[in-house]
Amino acid sequence: MTLSPVLKRLASPLILLSLLPFAAASCGGGDDDTPPPKTVLSVSGDVTTQTQFTLAQIQAQPATTQTVSFGSGTGQQTHVYTGASLWSMLNQIGITTNAAVKNDVLAKYVIATGSDNYRALFAMGELSPDFGNRGNQVVYAETINGTSAALSSTDGPLRVTAPGDVKGGRYVSNLVTLKVGTAVSAVHVAGGGTTTQFQLSGAVATPASFDLAALQALPAVTRTVGTTTYTGVSLWNLLNAADIQASSTIKNDLLGFYLIATGSDGYRVILSLAELSPDFGNQPDIVAYEMNGAPLTTTGFARLVIPGDGKAGRYVSNLLALEVVSAPR
């Protein structure tokens, strides 16, 4: 039988040798049977590198152990968790910021989402050691009766913590994604100056405008920071009175909301609404209109004050606007 030219070429030794790697790859056996490490956590959004972590990679991060207590549907819980710092992990990957914008990281947030699409939002200022320093972790182990063990099947293999929260709504179990976002504001800034009023808008049923008289007509609270005593109104009460438009059909929908505070010069920071809610972070933040018994002057008639922060980067002077936003899903 005479071979066709095509078959003669296929039968040549060089062609046969060139096919061997493909033949070997298609056969079982040896190390090729070992499945690749499974991704347990994806990090995306406004980061330098979209990253997928395996459990082993997370366990290789510098770890700390923390004891946390929080309320749940089954009563008060106390846990000892081991894991990696959420802030450190995000910074290792690289949070995308604009160097030309002062404290641009304070306009960023991260959303932690579980395998069931349950989510909770954390403001970067809340996480940063320079500001809120909450100590949130991505945890993979729990100490039970003095013995460290993997998280239970209901919580694991990963969970994010929210130290200091009153209730456990932001302890997202079966954590699968972290998405970094940037606040999107609808407020137009004219370019500075001393403010005499600010607007409350966004995802609220009752938008409003506040001047000094309007603030002074509300129940007053005081907060002392170092040697300075501020007088003003509770930020949470101000927002709650405007009726935040969270969905009643989505479990803890409020945990996906954030607040943008904007000054007259365009300086912008965000807080998660969970930071403010008495059910979760319960932070005593205020919109101040007096400092040590005297009206604010060059800092505008109203100033956002965050008493628990290490630095004053989230103290927004010449307050121009407060916007309530539900982060996109």
Rank of each mutant, 00 (worst) to 15 (best):
A246E: 12
L271W: 14
L273R: 06
S128Y: 03
S69C: 08
L296G: 01
P35Q: 09
S317I: 11
Y109G: 03
G181Q: 01
A149V: 06
A120K: 02
P284G: 06
V305C: 00
D211T: 11
T78D: 07
D155Q: 12
G313T: 02
G83W: 06
A327F: 07
R170H: 15
V324W: 08
T227H: 00
L271N: 12
P157H: 08
T194Q: 14
Q137I: 11
R329K: 14
A214R: 11
A63H: 13
G310A: 12
P163G: 11
L7S: 11
Y267F: 15
N136W: 03
G135D: 05
A302F: 05
S42F: 03
L10G: 03
L55Q: 10
L259W: 05
L212A: 13
L106F: 06
D32H: 09
T298R: 08
T262P: 05
G71T: 12
G226A: 00
S115P: 01
Q61Y: 13
V68Y: 15
S209H: 05
A11N: 12
R170Y: 10
G168H: 08
G168T: 08
A11H: 08
L16E: 02
Q77E: 13
P284H: 12
A302M: 11
L19R: 07
I93Q: 00
A56F: 05
N91P: 00
T147H: 03
L215N: 03
L319F: 05
A149S: 13
Y258S: 04
N292P: 04
A186Q: 13
Y171I: 07
E126W: 02
T228I: 08
T195W: 03
V40L: 10
N136V: 01
R170S: 15
S234L: 01
G30L: 12
T2W: 11
R159H: 03
N282K: 15
T64Y: 06
M89W: 01
A274P: 02
P21W: 06
